[in-house]
Amino acid sequence: MEGLFYNADDGYLEGIVRGYRSSILTNSAYINLTQCETLEDVKLQLSASDYGTSLQNEPHMSTSMLAQKCTDKLVREFDYIRAHAVAPLQQFLDYMTYAYMIDNVILLITGTLHERDTHELLDRCHPLGVFESMPALCVATNVAELYNSVLVETPLAPYFSDCLSAEDLDEMNIEIIRNTLYKAYLEDFYHFTQTFGGPTAEIMGELLQFEADRRSLNITINSFGTELTKDDRAKLFPNIGRLYPEGNLKLAKSDDVDQVKGACDVFLEYRQFFDSSTGTGSSKTLEDRFFEYEVHLNKKSFQQQFHYALFYSFLKLKEQEIRNIVWISECISQGQKERINNYIPIF
């Protein structure tokens, strides 16, 4: 039924996004990129792709410049979509930017804690998550002040309700705040997408459930050997996802990676993350496998029409592509040619 009315508001944008999607670098383009000897070669290879025009007038190639230009292009495309979107899609796109806002907030708080230069920090913020009162974040010293002076006006305000109790801003607390925010955000986004019904709810459900599970797994694995108690750890797990509730319960009790593996063992897709025996993938880290599976899920969402998940997937795939380009050019500029093939192919 979504085919009947979807195109009235969003048909044009769907076509646009599918156009953007077809400009994502293919496998053969990556093979060509990995053959490059210098960053100038990379530029030459990329000039045939959509990135060509934005790299054209750059005399000096560097990895950070390359990442900057690629991100700028992604942001331009996203802004175009955002500017043309109407009611429910607009809200959906806004939800997607909240994740970057959370990252920026955490980045600024952490930077302030380490007494970094404000301007330098603001430059490093992701452009998709920029909001007006962001520079004011640098003066806050505790969470309540942070909330009352700055964040209460941002869309992130409701997510802060769970972490206002945290007293001081130290390394540990910031990490807890980040994860609490993400948990609240993911749950909110998930419930929002489920109100659409149809393919949007179905595909976004799958994507966000995986995102939630990945966070739970990462939190568990990273908390081994730290002073985070098991109860506190369990509070950071999002209450959505395929691991929720019994998997999360197992994760909350686990003490080592083997027990984490046991919690994931019931899901066929998650089993492979910890399966070190599978063929050529021996050099892949857990993080790479997560990315690989995420790319797989995001690719699938383009196989259905008349839903919103493809806007989300497009952003995620483009981000992965930028990570790939940066990885390849890092390897080239640092002469680490043997590790160059650790990128994650998309199409």
Binding site: G3, N7, G11, Y12, L13, E14, G15
Partner: peptide, 15 residues
């Protein structure tokens, strides 16, 4: 026509 047309103009931008 509006279902087709909306997708057509969108997809026509890139191709």
């Amino acid at each position: 026509i509006f279902i087709t047309g909306a997708s057509l103009v969108g997809a026509g931008v890139h191709a």
